[in-house]
């Protein structure tokens, strides 16, 4: 029977993986292992000077749930789950946030740190001149990151402001339709249960395409219906509908039809869900436009500020930080 580093994971007793992963779960221990391994020890390896002892630093990879728990326990931590079809623009949006912080504050929040800078740089690589691509590209998010997080620590500019950890869960485009199809797959999206915000990302280029429009719009609603039904989101969750690729949507040749279709989806979304969640926000963005215009940085900054600033979990201006574990919908409830 496989064993897991996470003590509460039921996989060792024949249950399903706490994080819904398969054999590639980094928390799985070899079958012969009886104990949770100690932290990575100092090792002797080639590091320039022969045989010099080296020590591991944090990996820079997306954070596991166990890491996220630590952040949630130390103070104010906002969890945002992003979901949508493959190529809907989720990763472009995350890479755009990283780029915007490299240019200054975002939505009134200053960059105060990140445990996943290498991953952010990797995500953005194919949109840089240095990568040698002719036009920006974006890698697809692998399923293995379905229950992991990119991370920022941010700080508001006023005196006495406390750091806020923002944990961004990028659910792969492959998992999204499967979660609609099968409740069991949906339930494997463990992070959703702690999400303060669920952002459903809809590809504006698909809305502009009549053969894709109706399926993409329906799937956005179906996904929310599914996670409401499973109880993974509820009245504590703030819902966002993000229509991406505004540049394609606004193509003058079909702008009227496309805009009407987008508006219809926004209206349906709001009407269907506003009484079932803490709030519904709709956004139209272009994180990486291809029509010669610049990204909609202002609306993306506003979106980010809404994620960080509006939450049912914390007071808007806390003087004392509530521990995350003292509230409902916590990481500690995962898998139970």
């Amino acid at each position: 029977m496989p064993k897991c580093k996470l003590p509460e994971c039921p996989i060792a007793s024949g249950g399903r993986c706490l994080e819904g992963r398969t054999d590639d779960c980094p928390n799985l221990l070899p079958e012969s292992s009886d104990a949770v391994p100690a932290p990575v020890p100092a090792v002797k390896e080639k590091s320039g000077k022969k045989d010099e002892e080296t020590l591991a630093l944090f990996s820079g990879l997306p954070l596991e749930i166990a890491d996220a728990r630590e952040f949630a326990a130390r103070g104010r931590a906002i969890v945002v789950a992003l979901t949508g079809m493959t190529e809907s623009g989720k990763t472009s949006l995350l890479a755009r946030l990283h780029q915007q912080f490299q240019a200054g504050t975002v939505g009134g929040y200053a960059f105060a740190g990140s445990r996943t800078l290498p991953r952010f740089e990797e995500l953005n690589w194919l949109a840089t001149i240095e990568s040698g691509v002719g036009a920006p590209r974006m890698e697809h998010t692998s399923r293995k990151y379905d229950n992991s997080f990119l991370h920022f620590t941010v700080l508001q500019s006023h005196e006495g402001a406390l750091p806020i950890d923002v944990l961004l869960n990028d659910i792969s485009g492959e998992t999204y339709p499967e979660a609609i199809t099968a409740e069991s797959i949906c339930r494997q999206l463990i992070c959703l249960s702690r999400a303060d915000h669920l952002a459903v990302v809809v590809d504006g280029a698909a809305i502009a395409n009549r053969s894709l429009r109706h399926d993409h719009c329906s799937k956005a609603k179906n996904f929310v219906e599914r996670v409401l039904q499973t109880g993974q989101i509820n009245k504590a969750t703030i819902l966002h509908l993000i229509i991406t690729k505004l540049d394609v949507l606004s193509d003058p040749a079909k702008a009227e039809e496309n805009t009407a279709a987008a508006a219809r989806l926004e209206e349906d979304f709001t009407k269907n869900f506003r009484t079932k969640v803490a709030g519904v926000h709709t956004w139209r963005i272009a994180a990486r436009p291809r029509d010669g215009t610049m990204p909609t940085e202002e609306s993306i900054a506003k979106l980010f500020a809404t994620w960080v600033g509006s939450t049912r979990r914390y007071d808007s201006n806390p003087t004392v930080l509530p521990l995350s574990s003292s509230r409902g919908r916590d990481f500690n409830e995962f898998g139970t």
Binding site: L55, A56, L57, F58
Partner: peptide
């Protein structure tokens, strides 16, 4: 790159 540093 390596996410390690020397003990020294």
């Amino acid at each position: 790159t390596d996410r390690r540093w020397t003990k020294s």
